[in-house]
Every structure is written in C-alpha cells, then in structure tokens.
Amino acid sequence: MTFLEVIFYLLASIAIISGLMMISIKNPVQAALWLVLGFIATAGIWITAQAEFLGLVLILVYVGALMVLFLFVVMMLDVNITQIKERFTAYLPLGILTSIAIFAIMYMVIGPDRYGVDQMPVPKSMPADFSNTKLLAIPLYTEHAYAFVLAAVLLLVGIVAAITLTLRRRAPSVVLYQDIDKQVKVQRNDRFKIIKMDAVVEEDVKPIDEDEEGKK
C-alpha cells in the first residue's frame, strides 16, 4: 500500500462515515458539522486526484462561507427535534425507496459503465509545478464563456432578489435606523462648540485662627 492509498482510504472512510452521521444524528447543528467534515474529506480526495484547484475552492466556498451561513441559520432557529422526528418511522419506507431510486440513477449515470476503471484511463502524473488552475480557466473563458457569463448573471439576479426580499424599511416610529454615512460625516463643529471665556479664579481659603484646640 502506498502512502497515497493510505491517505485515500482514510479520507474516503471519513467522508462516508460523516455522510452517514450527517443524516442519522439528531442534533441539527452537529449534523451540519458532520457535513462540513464530509466536505473537507471530499476536498482531500479531489486534491489527491490532482484537482487541487477544485478541492481548495470546495473548502473555500462550501466550508468557509456556505456552511457557516447554514450553521448560523440552524443555530439561531432553535429547531424542535422531537417534532421533526415524530413521523420518522412513517416516512421511513418512502425514504428508503427514494434513496434507492436516487442511488440507482446515480449508478446508471456515473457507474462503472461510463466512468469505470477500464473506461477512464489513469490520469497522467503531472509534475509538481503543473497548474491545473490555468488548464481549467482556459476552456472556461474561451469555449464556455457564454455559459460562464450566463451563470454569473444568474448569480447576480439571485443576489439582487435576496437583497430586495430582505430589504424592507419600516416607519421610523416602528424601527429606528442608523445612517452610518451620516454618522461618519459628522465633524467636530457639528457636535460641540469651544467657547473662549475668562478663567474664574477662586479665592484662597483663609486659615482658621489657631486657638487652643486647633493647636491640640
């Protein structure tokens, strides 16, 4: 067994175990964390398969940004677990059926018939300074430029839609808004005035006449 194989089996078993844990664990926050572990293991497998750009982007986008937002939502929502688990057994047969169907479709599409070991040759081992980032970028920006731009526009529309959905201004009597631009623009002179005035000198305190008691 080579070192790479050890790494591969390690990452693959982590990915599978975390996938199983993700769907079977009760706590939604922990389920999301298992999903993160699954992502990281998958990214590791991709990197061992010389797709380091894809692997790193998977971590950067899914683990670093997407799952954090997801965790936000799950943590904030305070999901009632018992309510979700109530009809678990009732839906179980349907769930098993669906998962078998999905697995079958996936097997047909990306099974050994199409992507098996004998269909796909072993990728050439590239030298260490080989950059597959460039290799990915060139077809993306030339052959598939149209699809690429379309996807970008779609994402932009998504961003705009999400912002318009959440952006609602209520009357100032209901919610008070802070206009930070205005706050930042405030100058010293807007807030207070420095006034020149004559200093007021207090009179000296006269020492009390020393009588018998004062002298002790």
Binding site: V205, P207, I208, E210, G214, K215, K216
Partner: peptide
C-alpha cells in the same frame, strides 16, 4: 502630619 494639616481643619 496633623501639624501640617492643622490650619485647614
């Protein structure tokens, strides 16, 4: 100390 402070007391 008391002597120094005496005139203020």
């Amino acid at each position: 100390d008391r002597a120094v402070d005496a005139k203020y007391r």
